[in-house]
Each structure stands twice: as structure tokens, then as C-alpha cells.
Amino acid sequence: MIEIKNLHANVEGKEILQGINLKVNAGEIHAIMGPNGSGKSTLANVLAGHEGYEVTEGSVSFNGKDLLDMAPEDRAREGLFLAFQYPVEIPGISNATFLQTALNEIRKYNGQPELSPKEFLDLIKEKSEILNMDSSLLSRAVNQGFSGGEKKRNEILQMLTINPKLAILDETDSGLDIDALKIVSQGVNAFRSDDNAVIVVTHYQRLLDYIVPDFVHVLFHGKIIKSGNKDLALELEEKGYDWLTKGSLETQNV
């Protein structure tokens, strides 16, 4: 699905990603964990094509295509979805208009017919139910006046509607209470299939109780310093990051 090789990226001249290697196959869930400032969100934004990040080295192949060569919208149309850590508020544009435009653009790109307003509404209704979302949110402006939890749920609703090949969830659990966390996880679990993949970026293990990863990677100083299965997340929960990061610094010093 996606193969990241030796990815280096800068933000305002500072190197944040220092050689990421990661391969994700269809049907897999990968969790990327790590302390604050380790580069988790940078990785998510670089993959989505944020112009504030400069890729200095490395390659990313997405379903056989060069991802880094594409505009953000083309990445989305190719099937990459980023659930933002801080979804932006866009006053004056309704959720419905926004999502319908997005969905139809993606469908057009992939040679599928556009959905009629009726078909779109039916689809949204179906997906909203999975997330216990009130459909009145649709007529409101994109994320405007939404609570933190509503914003995150809205991201997952967009994911379910667009049905991408690869979903990257950037700290989707932050700011959610346990009930909201469960609902969001329900959405992600409803989404997953053998044909798609999920990368869960998170600081805490608790989300992984509900979205069970196949692989767990620890990101530190812009590099993956350890990979393992879901037990690694539990170990991190128990011991924190210090035992890993210290080791990493020592090895780096050698």
C-alpha cells in the first residue's frame, strides 16, 4: 500500500524527520507512538502534502505511485486520508457542501459517477449513524463551533464517507472522553477491511485497546527506533518511553 524509504523532512529549516522507513500493506493497522515532539504529526502532514514541510531526502511510494510528487488533492484522490489532529474551522461553508464536493471530486478522478444530492444524503445518514452523529451537524459550517469531540467525530465521518485506501489518524484520541473514544473506534473498525490500511498516530496506548494494531512503531527524534506487535504498546504504557529513548541516545552516541 505505502512504502516510506529514508524520509527526511524539515520545518522552517529544522530537520524533524531524520530517515523514516515504514511499509504498510493492505489489511494492516499500524500504530506510530512516541513522545511529544518526536515527529509523529510531521510524518502525517508530510504524507498528506502540507506545504509547510520540506522533504529533503527519501521516497514514498503509494500504490506504486510517487506520493511526494503529487498535490495534496491528488494524494486524497489516490486514496490517502488524514484525520487531522486540529481540524480547521471554515465559517461560511457547510459540512454538506464541503463533503459532497470532496466526495464527488474523488469519484470523478477515479472514473466513478458523481452522487446525486439524494444519494449523498443517504450515504451520510448511514455513516452518521455509525458515529451516533446528529445529522443537523451537516448544515452547520465546517467544524465551526464544534467541540473537540465533535471535530474528531466529523473527521471520522469524512473518512467513512470518502472511504480511502489509507487512513492516517493523527492523535484522533486526544481530547476525547472514554465514550467518544469508543464511538470513534467503532467508526474506524467499521471502516477497516482487507483492502485498506490504517496508520494510527498516538501518544497514548488507550486508543489501541479499541483499535487493535498489527504493528507498533516507536518514533523518536525523527526515526523509528523500535517496532513490535501490540504488546509493545502495553510495554510502553507500563514503562514509559525513557527506557527506549535512553537506549537510543546511547546507541546514537556510540
Partner: peptide, 20 residues
């Protein structure tokens, strides 16, 4: 960026923001 990351082409994304 947010709008484009949902697959909306840049000219439409601009129009959306103008409308907004």
C-alpha cells in the same frame, strides 16, 4: 490545505474559501 487534503482541486478549494 484541509480542503485540498479531502480531494478538492485547488481552484474549487479557492472558490469555497471565497464563498466562505
Amino acid at each position: 490545505f484541509y480542503i485540498r487534503s479531502r480531494g478538492v482541486p485547488s481552484n474549487i478549494a479557492k472558490s469555497m474559501l471565497i464563498r466562505a
